[in-house]
Amino acid sequence: MGSEQGTSKPLFDSSLDHNPDSVRKNDHIRLALQQQKAPKRNAFDDMRFVHHALRAVDQASVSTATQVCGEEWPLPFYINAMTGGSAQAGEINSLLAQAAAASGLAMATGSQHAALRRPELEPTFTTVRDRNPSGFVFANVGPTVSPEQAVRAVNMLSASALQIHINPVQEAVMSEGDRDYGTWPERIRAIAEAVPVPVVVKEVGFGLSRPTIELLASLGISTVDVSGRGGTDFAVIENERRTDRDYWYMDNWGLSTVLALLTASQPETVPGVALLASGGVRSPLDVVKALALGAQAVGVSGHFLATLTAHGVSGLVDEINDWASQVRALMSLLGARKVADLRHSDLLITGPTAEEARLLGVDLPALARRSAQ
């Protein structure tokens, strides 16, 4: 839908997009939406809260505020990186930014590489700041850009912070992807030193292991988004874009969001590193589960894109407001007056996630009795 009501033109009209960068971005949107049509079980379903009937607190006493990159957000979830770099992607960014402005959510753009290569594509990203002039906005680049290009990306959006996405699995499957990963750590260090805003390093749906987070900490990174398996699968997307689909076996590669959070935060979070989480977040309950595992805030992409596509800006704003109300209700039930209190809730981890977590040394029985400690 081209407007909030979806009556003027299709939202995903790609007829004006012909250059390779834009065609690839449109492929990503189309294939990501296809994955949203069949919601699937993921590792969040291996996680349950222990219910304590007399520990609930008044909802009026609950604060959903959280601290991210030195700023206070009113809600502990945000619109995570999706798109940009084509006409239809620009329209999506514009509508997402309207929803972010109306609801007070932070928002990230997709990778700005296309605009750094083709200045004519900058409006598909700058519309985010135009539509949301005072909101918290993440710029987005990968580790292959120069520090100077990273600064340009930040300035392009007057960004509040910068996401550096790391996506070796996607690049490996992508026909036109990068193949040189060895310089990425030092490039990340150089970008973080050059830009004038906080930096978040995030995966794109394959998870950050604890050793990776420890390495990032040594590079001067103080916030990471573990962005695990369970949501949009870019290995599947890039394999679908290949004529022979010969990377079919890469489905479900990586660490789930839950497993990445478990290993990142148990027995304690990597010193000096704040956690964000994304990947497979389908509901307010998934948000609260991720917060209970140590995330300061939770990114949502696919679900919000599908909601926007089906119901327009007003429908997405209604959904965000519903999620905010439900997160507050769940925190109340769990006796959490503030987000940090969720980290003392008792958790039951079962199924495949429990098996994987044990192999990685996570003390699951201790998680089930955290409130007694």
Rank of each mutant, 00 (worst) to 15 (best):
A114F: 14
A43E: 08
F44Q: 00
T83C: 05
G110F: 02
T127Q: 13
A60V: 13
M82C: 09
D46S: 07
R117K: 14
F49A: 09
C69W: 00
P133V: 11
T126C: 11
P119D: 03
T126H: 11
T66L: 02
A102P: 06
A65D: 10
T124S: 15
D45Q: 01
L96R: 03
D45V: 01
H51S: 15
A108R: 05
D46P: 01
M47R: 00
A87E: 12
T64D: 11
Q67E: 13
E122H: 03
M47I: 06
A53G: 11
W73D: 10
F125P: 04
V62I: 12
G104E: 04
V128H: 00
A101F: 09
E91N: 08
L75D: 01
L96H: 05
Q67D: 02
S134G: 09
A53N: 12
V62P: 06
A56W: 11
Q88T: 12
E122L: 13
R118H: 14
S63G: 04
A101T: 05
Q88F: 00
E71S: 13
Y78R: 05
Q98F: 08
A65C: 14
T127V: 15
F77D: 00
S103L: 11
G104Q: 04
P133I: 08
G135T: 03
C69N: 00
A102Q: 10
V57D: 04
L75T: 01
I92F: 06
I92P: 04
G104L: 09
P76G: 08
A81Y: 06
E120N: 00
R129N: 07
F44R: 01
G85D: 04
M107R: 12
Q112A: 08
E71A: 14
A99F: 06
V62N: 11
A60D: 14
V62K: 03
Q59E: 15
H51T: 15
V128D: 08
S111W: 09
T124E: 09
R131H: 08
H52M: 09
S86E: 08
T109N: 13
N132W: 08
E71W: 00
T109A: 14
A115P: 00
S61R: 15
R131E: 13
G84C: 12
E72N: 03
G90L: 06
C69R: 00
P74E: 01
D46K: 04
D130V: 09
A99N: 00
A106F: 02
A114W: 11
F49V: 02
F77P: 05
Q112M: 14
T83S: 06
P76H: 04
T109P: 12
L105W: 09
V128N: 10
S61L: 15
F77C: 08
A53W: 10
M82T: 06
S94C: 05
G135F: 14
A114M: 12
R118W: 07
Q67C: 06
S134C: 05
V128M: 04
Q112C: 07
E91I: 02
F125C: 09
A97S: 05
C69D: 00
V57T: 11
G70I: 00
S103Y: 11
S61K: 15
P123E: 10
S63L: 07
V68S: 10
G104D: 07
R48E: 06
L75I: 02
F44S: 02
L116H: 06
H52Y: 14
V50K: 13
T83V: 05
D45G: 08
A87R: 08
H51L: 13
Q67L: 06
P76W: 02
R55G: 12
E91C: 02
D58T: 12
R131L: 09
T64L: 10
G85T: 04
N132K: 07
V128P: 04
